[in-house]
Design a protein around this nucleic acid. Sequence first.
DNA 1: CGATTAAATCTAAACGATTAAATCAAAGGA
DNA 2: TCCTTTGATTTAATCGTTTAGATTTAATCG
Lengths: 345, 345
Amino acid sequence: MSSVKRKGERVTLKEVAKHAGVSTATVSYVINNTRYVSDKLKSSVLNAVDELGYSPNNIARSLRSNQTYTIGLIVSNVENPFYTEIARAIEEKAYSEGYSVIICNSEDDILKETNYLKLLQSKRLDGIILAPAPGENEHLYYVLQENSMPIVLLNRKLDVEGIPIIKINNRHSAERCVNHLIETHGYRDIGAVIGSVETLLSKDRYDGFVHALNSFGLPVRNEWIIHGNSSFAGGYKALKHLMGKDKRPEAIFIGGSLMYLGVLSALKELHLKCPEDIALIGFSEMRFSHLLEPPLSTIHQPAKKLAELSLEVLLQQISGIERKQNAFELETELIIRNSCGCNKM
Amino acid sequence: MSSVKRKGERVTLKEVAKHAGVSTATVSYVINNTRYVSDKLKSSVLNAVDELGYSPNNIARSLRSNQTYTIGLIVSNVENPFYTEIARAIEEKAYSEGYSVIICNSEDDILKETNYLKLLQSKRLDGIILAPAPGENEHLYYVLQENSMPIVLLNRKLDVEGIPIIKINNRHSAERCVNHLIETHGYRDIGAVIGSVETLLSKDRYDGFVHALNSFGLPVRNEWIIHGNSSFAGGYKALKHLMGKDKRPEAIFIGGSLMYLGVLSALKELHLKCPEDIALIGFSEMRFSHLLEPPLSTIHQPAKKLAELSLEVLLQQISGIERKQNAFELETELIIRNSCGCNKM
DNA sequence: CGATTAAATCTAAACGATTAAATCAAAGGA
DNA sequence: TCCTTTGATTTAATCGTTTAGATTTAATCG
């Protein structure tokens, strides 16, 4: 074959029907197994399907049935290891449930997020799983108005009744990190590198951080709390900034995987040793945190569970099943390695 | 609002038309800017759109126009750092071109790949970017028959004329790795951990490895060449296996990111030092290879360029533009860090 | 003023499936 | 035998757009 022919010449159900000498209804019934059809007709339909290489047009189906069997996943960036894992787990479960997933990176940009929401709306997806972007949520109300599509929120808050939200216990997790720094290592000068408090996620982590300090009677030194954007570069810049201060903290709590790596990279560049010169602890979803130098002490989030739960709730929402529960909070695990100053491998 | 209403009650173009007191054609013309419409009618249409909260139904559009503005990306697993980057870059460019992307993980499983191909076919996507899964390609011919959808291959070969293929120079890249081990460090006992030779990708890397040894007159010792599957576990098992031999190699060439990390992890577990006990070099698309212990000497692939080029070629294919060139090969970069025995940072 | 032309709008036929409702055929019952 | 019932198949409306082509309206001109 010299080249693939252009579209628009595909075989339709109608042609199958003609070829098999039956009506379109019959073809539809045998393909979807939705009514009894005599063996004789059934086999001639099947033959025709085979001979013509018929592949049903799901667009037409969707138009008729109002179902696309496709959902959207909006995250800030799949390259963030946490969202990579989320995306993977959602795709896997979605596949097994007969759904496809369109992946959207909002890049923490409200405009891009809005555009994607409108687009997914127009594509009539069956539902959306939406992870946080910082800033106001006003643009979301547009999508959430009546007659709109099912949606579940991941680590993100919205003051609309009936929208399910799935999250981990960010506040408590942050607290445990800081507690560890204080209780086990006796650090008192503790800084933080956290994303914008405009997201629920970062706000909660910030609150946990502050609460831990307070509970030990330690002062919260605002000049040691850097709110960057939750990226590698954000962490990198934050650390450089922090190390430029007259008085430096002894330990730093870090509120996100990419920032953690950025911090680490900046540290290396400054020839500072971790944990000797400065101790680190925080959120990292890197599957390879233990291979880094030093092995990172981290909060481990149950990303897979989170993803599966989100999809489950979304699918319930799609099929109109009533939920008793609207908010779900999963627990995390604190994994102590070396970066905080502990010696375990 | 107590709860989002179920679907099926959305406002249609027809309703907009009635509300604005014009025909559906007129509404369509103003929405798509496809014919001149008087200011008077135009504004009343726009008003109606606004008041009713109309959002066009792209399913109906697609049915009419035979265009979905959606493409499919099939990779073995987005969690593989190389494909994460590919997915990200494709999504970004696709977005800017007005396309969405459905992501599919084949898990190197021919059945899953086949199912996805059929599904994407049924969904009438505009095109597919297909990365390799190992094994025979027979199932692909089904998708590639006449009247089928545009497709481009990433690092994957297929004997069908006119199917574009985009790849990096795998053979030469592997060769350079091994050359470095021999020329710079004088290693003579060199093993390899590579994926299944049933993929073009791994086959090329294998060939490069062998060719390098040959060109220095070194023997190819098959017991030191482990073909695992290209995963973390694959690398991990391969190394353990390799280290169980009576005579061990001094250095290992590794043909993939995840395997590289698996090898590293197994090494740590065995308390073997790299590069002192065993030197490593190979393909790793980890953005953070330099933060690992030791910093990895790697081939760096221009994933972003690869992704953008693939999409570009696919879009050309979709719009029926003739290509002069059907095969594209990009060059890689050898980045020397510490794992091979060099001392540079 | 009527004819001609151009401009703006509308009518209605697709696109490719699903599915109520209608039709047709055969069997069963009196 | 004729009527009823049941079962298998078909007819045709529908989903929400786009877009030729028909129609209407307005403008121009001899």
